[in-house]
Design a protein around this nucleic acid. Structure first.
Lengths: 235, 235
DNA sequence: TAGTGGTCTAGACCACTAG
DNA sequence: TAGTGGTCTAGACCACTAG
């Protein structure tokens, strides 16, 4: 809890937006006017206004002023950590195989690689209470001299595997979640006695320029899938 | 593209963090030292540092300095707009009933209401290409004088219904997605010929103090469910 | 032409840290 | 006690807006 002047101004204006003193689309008093109103300088008022703008309450237009924003209501944050599933704690993982393979059509498409390139494939099983609940495949472009010993690879997330080569700060990630019918391979691996719908979580990691650095897909029993999200502030 | 001095400083330091000149946990030069380095004042350097801190690259400790942050890699943003499903466009919705009911256990729990209170229930069907793909229930605490005419209610989102009473800016929302076996009611409403797993999307809206203002649950055929998320910056 | 937000300067005092 | 980030002051010049 800060008691600084700009924090008080921030809270004052925020509550005035909330209780409708300033309504959506309306212009706030100028920085100078607010400075006089709160008996302070323009720069202090500005700290408050910049915070309100950061949080999406208002937006500035140069030469005009600050306007009250519409609240965007549809952006949520989702926590997905690659090791555990959404809300269940994986207590054991088992690396099945590590191979260097030629890409098939899906891999080629997702990693933007030609068919004669080579890709490292890591296959992994995830357990909860000794039960197989998910199966995971990770694909990373192979480069010569790449360390693929099991010791360094076991337990690693896709991000960590890529971190050997790239600075993590510059990478971008995309998550795609959908549902598919299990095929024979998945049925066998996860001990399904018949075809069943399962959840597929695909993760793609790109560099700054959008070049794919890695792709993974995880197939998971639906009983072990649950997503919790919280509303984000405007951005 | 800003060419301001603080923006140049921001980009310089950011790239130095990315290429490893400053590594995780390491302290940056002080604001004064950076001011001398870039031949400017402390306040200008500060603008750059505050932006880097906002974006999660660094964090300040009073009396010490700015430290390079670990990159958090597991927070994604998800767009869910209440009208359309995640990636499919609903081309028709149909309001089935609007009722004032006594809460059952689930409603009572989610809206924190006693069993003798009253709740407005809105039931709705969602169509894609003339096919029923989802069924939606919205629950809102009933207060006397509340307008529940169909004209004002049809098509409205949970947020919009609540906006009649509360300022939207102060509300918080939570999204919970999981999977359940369809029951008889859902089978009948969505024309399922047998029990099938379907996706349940629950949305709860709270006020500032965490008091529930509304709750909705949507049951959706799995073929019409897909989530796309993008990595968020550190927060 | 008067007013707006964006940037920048050159100071000041504060609570806090660590030797 | 010297140095740090947090806050605040009182100015300045700029590009831009709108009458």
């Amino acid at each position: 809890m800060s008691n600084s002047l700009y924090d008080q101004i921030y809270k004052k204006i925020r509550s005035e937006i909330n209780n409708g003193k300033y309504s959506v689309g309306e212009m706030l008093p100028s920085e100078n006017a607010l400075g006089k109103l709160f008996n302070t300088t323009r720069m202090t008022v500005r700290s408050a206004l910049i915070r309100l703008a950061d949080e999406g309450y208002i937006y500035p237009i140069v030469g005009k002023g600050y306007y009250v924003n519409e609240k965007k209501f549809n952006l949520y944050s989702l926590d997905y950590d690659e090791i555990n599933l959404m809300n269940f704690i994986i207590d054991e993982t088992k690396l099945i195989t590590v191979d260097i393979i030629k890409p098939d059509v899906d891999i080629s498409y997702n990693l933007k690689l030609p068919s004669d390139s080579r890709v490292v494939l890591l296959r992994r099983l995830l357990f909860i209470d000794k039960k197989k609940v998910a199966y995971d495949e990770k694909f990373i472009p192979y480069y010569s001299g790449m360390p693929i010993d099991e010791a360094s690879i076991n337990q690693a997330t896709l991000s960590e595997l890529i971190a050997n080569k790239e600075s993590l700060f510059t990478t971008k990630k995309k998550l795609m979640i959908d549902f598919i019918e299990s095929n024979k391979e998945i049925n066998k691996i996860l001990d399904f006695d018949k075809v069943q719908t399962c959840c597929r979580i695909q993760l793609t990691i790109h560099d700054d320029e959008g070049e794919p650095l890695g792709w993974s897909r995880l197939f998971c029993q639906m009983d072990y899938f649950k997503i919790d999200c919280k509303l984000l502030l405007n951005k």
